[in-house]
Design a protein around this nucleic acid. Structure first.
Length: 794
DNA sequence: TACAGTTGTCATGGT
DNA sequence: ATACCATGACAACTG
């Protein structure tokens, strides 16, 4: 544990700072074993928001080793606190829920899809929400040029990898389609981040896309433009089963021998389809086949319209047959996550593309969509890699307006793409709600905010929320949900809003001011500030930021989870300048003005800032003492009247030992001693009350943020659910088409077709397929799921 | 003046 | 036992 703390307080803090710069919320706890306490508690001690603030023990709890108050190790302690404060200040520039979904989109210049229009009408992106503008003046030559890029850019720009902004400009040249709009700062940041990762033990090659690419190229060199790549083959085979080569050639599986009477092609198709469907939907033998559909649908189904899910499913089931269904679904989920699309704004706003691809696949495969979900950084950081053969050319076709309005209708665009080299791409992005990808709706429009000028958090949140729901409802309607279902969904969403984040949108709400430092409104609710109150009080983040920046460190209660409404704390190190306080490890975290708090002049009792303001505002030129008497607090007046020979600040803030020494030094009457103790009690209680109130506020804020987060998650899950529903429907349609096709080709011994209304295909437990009369099938279903192997041959 | 929000204070309980 | 902190409740203050 000791090593752990040392480790965290140095390397990890710096690492966290850097991650915070790019808006990544670092959940360092995930690095640790579950048995270990949360990092925050290691570094900060128990959550100060919910536990008592042991100010006098802070040093011990923070560093954990019982540093004596006079120990020189206190400097280390203060350094740690200062670093932590820097972290906190940094995160004020980011949104409280910094989900970073970073897309790494590889545009393979060599695999330019010959898909129709090369005029490449670019997607019109909404301002701000659009993706990188290739013509942005911020684009560094390195990122554009690609070849000359320094390695520090993670080789995002390397020509072969050609990371490109998803929605590239129409005039995008093949050679400069690298990470557009990555500003120099971003690049430097990434580089620094990489160095930190190196420090943490991560090899650069982990992040070096080009290196990995080259390695894989060496391992399995193949022309990218060729469709012979195994991955591509898998994709294509998966997507288009009928066009596929014999499966055993690709997957190593042998073609099952059931239904030997069927034509080979039919058998193949059937087997492929059945395997696919069985792997995807674990229906039992009693599975009912869909009702007969019209011939056109059958044709469509057998046409292998490559939808996203289909492609993914097929790829998964065929390329990795050893995976169990659970894993497959997880993979599908991971890929489906592509539609949550918080990332485009990440790319847009921050112009930062972090390539932390730790995928094991050959990233060079231009047709491989890679999703890294298990990045050790954070669960909230979704790193995606997507490969786009030619963004500018394909996107318009990939995302037609009515993209997925009706899955039963074949779309020429999709078919055309399916026939092309980008079939997998199409299948990857096809059915996903990519229409939303490039629209400004995307959630995290303000997730990463590194620019000092922050968008209106209110509108951003509102837009996010509304568009989320709108898109969800639209999706539901597209899905053909019934009106009732749609209304139900809407009700769900409404009920969400019933959770009322209105307060979060209120001016004083921190959630509305997720970029809290920009929330001047929050100061209205927590208005007693450092300069005003003098003694204690809340302060806005901006104020705190300023104060803490100036002070360099802060101590005392700082709820780790809250970015808002922090109190202003004094730099304990400044106490070192006070001889009588050098050995005091006492920091009550209150906004005591040092100048007055430790004034050694009894005749000048501390004047609160409020009083100072009043004094300034007072046009009357009263004697100083009168002003003091008039505006001093009751205790101050009492102390003055009782001729207490030291300031209230000392009375309140001195540790008990020194306080007792102070009392012993002076010969005080009983009434004076009682007053002093009352002053001390009241003063401490005052600060305690303020801390308590602030804690309450932070708790409320935190709860609001949690509610928002949960809402986002719920919306995302609903989207995913609907995607799955759509996928299942498409698969059912496809299977039904194949089913019909098989039936049309089945012949009995006399060459007569089996009437579909009298016979049905049944699955055997061993994967065999048999034809049974419907009556028998139903009877057997009723009787027993067990079925006899009763193959019928043509 | 009414009112809501803020702040100080007390009482009480816990550490 | 003592000191300290947290917190509910109340009242004064403030705009």
């Amino acid at each position: 544990m000791l090593y752990l703390k040392k480790y965290f307080t140095e390397g990890l803090i710096q690492f966290t700072i850097l991650l915070s710069l790019i808006g990544v919320r670092v959940d360092v706890d995930s690095y640790l074993n579950n048995q270990l306490p949360p990092l925050r508690e290691i570094i900060l001690g128990p959550s100060s928001a919910y536990t008592q603030t042991q100010f006098h023990n802070l040093r011990n709890t923070l560093d954990g080793y019982g540093i004596h108050p006079k120990s020189v190790d206190l400097d280390h302690f203060f350094t740690t606190r200062r670093l932590l404060n820097q972290v906190r200040q940094l995160d004020r520039l980011s949104v409280p829920t910094p989900e970073l979904n970073t897309w790494l989109v590889h545009r393979d210049s060599e695999t330019v899809v010959s898909a129709g229009s090369h005029s490449s009408p670019s997607i019109t992106l909404d301002n701000g929400a659009g993706l990188d503008n290739a013509n942005s003046p911020d684009v560094t030559p390195a990122m554009r040029g690609g070849s000359g890029a320094p390695e520090s850019t993670y080789n995002l720009n390397a020509a072969e990898s050609t990371l490109g902004a998803v929605a590239s400009e129409e005039n995008q040249e093949p050679g400069r389609n690298g990470g557009e709009d990555l500003s120099k700062e971003d690049i430097d940041l990434i580089d620094v981040l990489w160095r930190q990762d190196i420090d943490l033990g991560a090899g650069r090659e982990v992040f070096n896309y080009s290196n990995r690419q080259k390695e894989t190229e060496e391992e399995k060199p193949r022309p990218q433009e060729s469709n012979n790549g195994t991955e591509q083959e898998r994709w294509r085979n998966g997507v288009n089963a009928q066009e596929a080569q014999p499966v055993d050639g690709e997957t190593g599986e042998s073609i099952p021998e059931q239904l030997p009477s069927l034509g080979s092609q039919t058998s193949l198709s059937l087997q492929e389809c059945l395997r696919l469907l069985e792997a995807t939907f674990p229906f039992g033998q009693e599975t009912e086949f869909p009702a007969p559909v019209v011939a056109t649908e059958t044709a469509v189904s057998t046409e292998d319209v490559p939808s996203t899910s289909q492609g993914v499913l097929t790829q998964l089931t065929q390329a990795e047959p050893q995976l169990d269904l659970e894993q497959q679904w997880q993979d599908i989920m991971a890929i489906m996550e592509l539609q949550t699309m918080d990332a485009n704004t990440t790319l847009v706003q921050n112009n930062t593309v972090v390539s932390v691809s730790n995928g094991t696949r050959d990233a060079n495969n231009s047709n491989y969509v890679h999703t890294t979900r298990s990045t050790p950084i954070n669960q909230d950081v979704s790193l995606h890699q997507a490969t786009l053969p030619s963004c500018s050319q394909d996107f318009p076709q990939m995302f037609p307006p009515q993209f997925d309005s009706d899955s039963t209708t074949p779309r020429p665009t999709m078919l055309r793409l399916a026939s092309g080299n980008s079939s997998n791409i199409n299948s990857t992005f096809g059915a996903t709600n990519l229409t939303g990808v490039f629209l400004p709706q995307v959630n995290s429009s303000s997730n990463i905010t590194t620019t000092p000028i922050l968008p209106d958090p209110f509108s951003a949140l509102l837009e996010e929320s509304m568009l989320d729901e709108i898109s969800l409802l639209d999706l539901a309607m597209e899905e053909g949900f019934s009106q009732a279902q749609a209304s139900q969904l809407e009700d769900e969403l409404d009920s969400d809003s019933g959770l009322s984040l209105d307060s979060g949108h209120s001016p004083a709400s921190p959630s509305s001011s997720e970029t809290s430092c920009s929330s001047a409104a929050s100061s209205s609710s927590t208005s007693a500030t450092f300069s005003e109150e003098g003694a204690v009080g809340y302060s806005t983040d901006s104020e705190v930021a300023t104060a803490e920046t100036e002070d360099g460190a802060a101590g005392g209660y700082q709820p780790g989870f809250s970015k808002l409404c922090r109190m202003s704390y004094q730099d304990p190190s400044q106490f070192h300048n006070l001889p009588q306080l050098d050995s005091i490890s006492h920091n009550h975290t209150y906004n005591l003005q040092l100048s007055s708090a430790f004034s050694e002049r009894p005749e000048l009792p501390l004047s609160t800032a409020k009083k100072s303001i009043r004094d300034k505002q007072s046009s009357k030129l009263q004697p100083h003492q009168d002003l003091m008497d008039k505006h001093a607090s009751r205790d101050e007046r009492r102390a003055r009247s009782m001729k207490i020979p030291f300031t209230n600040e000392k009375i309140i803030n001195l540790p008990v030992e020194e306080f007792n020494e102070l009392l012993a030094k002076h010969h005080l009457s009983e009434s004076q001693l009682a007053l002093i103790r009352d002053i001390r009690r009241r003063g401490k209680n005052k600060m305690a009350a303020q801390n308590c109130r602030k804690r309450k506020l932070d708790t409320i804020i935190n709860l609001e943020q949690n509610v928002q987060e949960l809402r986002r998650n719920k919306a995302r899950l609903l989207k995913e659910k609907m995607e799955f529903i759509r996928t299942i429907r498409q698969m059912k349609q496809k299977m039904h088409g194949l089913y019909q096709e098989v039936f049309t080709q089945l012949r009995d011994e006399e060459g007569r077709p089996y009437p579909p209304n009298e016979y049905s295909l049944q699955y055997g437990s061993d994967g065999s397929v048999l034809i049974m009369p419907r009556s028998m099938a139903s009877a057997e279903q009723n009787r027993k799921p067990e079925k006899k192997q009763k193959d019928k041959k043509k």
